[in-house]
Design a protein around this nucleic acid. Sequence first.
DNA 1: TTGAAAGCGCTAACAC
DNA 2: GTGTTAGCGCTTTCAA
Lengths: 347, 347
Amino acid sequence: MREVADLAGVAMSSVSRVLSGHPDVSPAMRQRVMAAVDSLGYQPDLLAQSLRRRETLSVGFVVGDISNPLQSQIALGAETALRSRNYSMLLTNSENEPALDTSHIRLFQQRRVDGLLLSLAAEDDPQTLALLGAVETPIVLIDRELRGDVGRRASAVLSDHRSGMRDAVGHLLDLGHRRIGMILGQPMRFSRERLEGLKDAYEARGLAPTYAVVEGQLEPRHGRAATQTLLDAAEPATALVAGGNQLLNGALAEIQQRGLRVGGDLSLVSCDEISLTQLYQPPIAVVRRDTRALGRRAAELLLSQLESQEEGDDGRMRSTRAPETVLLPTEFVARPSCAPPAAPAAA
Amino acid sequence: MREVADLAGVAMSSVSRVLSGHPDVSPAMRQRVMAAVDSLGYQPDLLAQSLRRRETLSVGFVVGDISNPLQSQIALGAETALRSRNYSMLLTNSENEPALDTSHIRLFQQRRVDGLLLSLAAEDDPQTLALLGAVETPIVLIDRELRGDVGRRASAVLSDHRSGMRDAVGHLLDLGHRRIGMILGQPMRFSRERLEGLKDAYEARGLAPTYAVVEGQLEPRHGRAATQTLLDAAEPATALVAGGNQLLNGALAEIQQRGLRVGGDLSLVSCDEISLTQLYQPPIAVVRRDTRALGRRAAELLLSQLESQEEGDDGRMRSTRAPETVLLPTEFVARPSCAPPAAPAAA
DNA sequence: TTGAAAGCGCTAACAC
DNA sequence: GTGTTAGCGCTTTCAA
């Protein structure tokens, strides 16, 4: 920048003003400076700019595992939205370890990110909650719900898992299934809501709670083990609901191993659309949602917090806008993986 | 840091030395400083540190579309490796637009990233090549090959698509297929290599080149359209090779629409393993590779360049290590999606 | 071994 | 409208 100023024969501050679009600059000055900038191919140093301006135009995104299609779609939506407003995204994987969540959040703070997008590994990790309580920047939780002050101070985008699952289980019940087996992941909001949706459907029909639920990790191994459990029970499940694509993978592996026909011997519903659910034969019914929009809305919530910031008495920036929680819909899509039970339950 | 120094009653420079592990610090000093750091919960500002040290411990990753499983697995591998050496990853999507590639690379430069991990949208975009020619930091290309000086100055991790495809097509030929239809993406290295592998297999058996190839974009739409083309040809293909998971999606959609049985009416091979290829009935043969290792090796190449840097005469850092190119294997996995043609070709 | 001082590249008062 | 100056938070000579 020094060079640009010299070449243009003006002060550095003038160059700075031109480049940052300050209103009080004469056209002549703008001309000279821009000419010098072009001839030198000058690019401002965002690092120095950030240090001085006290904002980095960067956002930290903590995700469990970016290789999971669900999460990478969220990341895409978020990155695209952030980029459209000139923010960059720092991405890190927590490997579903709360301890990594905290260390990454700490690192992002040291990098002075302007905000945090969090898809946490746990909703009740004390370390994480304590750390988040001390975080100064806006936070947006993605499909997570935190208790206490932290939960109240953070924005969030949530999916309405409950209503989609209510429809899904309702569909199975209406087909005649009574022993429905549900495979869930970690005890977080999405699991609780799905379970509630399941209960809703039974209750709405005045049916006894003859379902079975197996909780575990959102991993294929658990999907497979849970499927075994549910199929080997005294009263085997006639329909399975997999609470995520990883669980579906495990469930399908077990189903195939046993030579069961999906839709024939066993009905199946999964959560979140992936190419497998659409192209499997028979196609697999899903509770789906717009995952990309989930990421996009999360970024938008964060941006709206960032863009409504004012300098507080202590010199720190504080958002003037209250945190928001957005609930995005889910939709049950019936497909041939759901059919009446092979041996119909007594009506 | 000022506060820490005051509390400990020492100079800021001493605090700095303690924190950055300078050898010449007395144990007493270390004690005092660390006590102050702990009591204040001080966290160094990485931004200021970066500005001064002239390194950011950050790497820019430009990817076409992170929601693509292939690319998100690469990203996971890369991020994990970078993180293990304390680097952070800035991620951006080019949406397969060369123009976005360049603008993102430019942005990353302004953010003073220490290096670039690039999965470019095109291998021959003049703007991109010109820009890369001016980039000072180490670059690692991911499954891309650039011509000229730029290509020589950059490191790269490449997959050996050719040999895996040679085996795949060889398998189809040995089953009796002669009209093999190949669906490829953009004209980049991975497409060229796959085509070469195809040719290799025909030539190795002394067969006439009775294959058909359709090039296009790595998108489901192209996969579908190409499948139509290949199946509606005067001499319809009896086996299809899809050069990527997006193409497979489109191809399968068309195959199902036509009511064709994979493995029965039509043999099928895809590239890169996804849950669909493993769990489809029948399972789909693939040319697979360790995508996570691809990302990991890319990050490792970059790190080895970064860690062997020295200050040049002009004050800039230059790596003393020559760029490396690593070739990673692919492996053909035969599966029931490949079977003898319905109407066997004349032997 | 430690401290004082300069400065990374930029912006924001403040003065002219 | 433009220039001068101070300083963001840190590291790194240099001198003591």
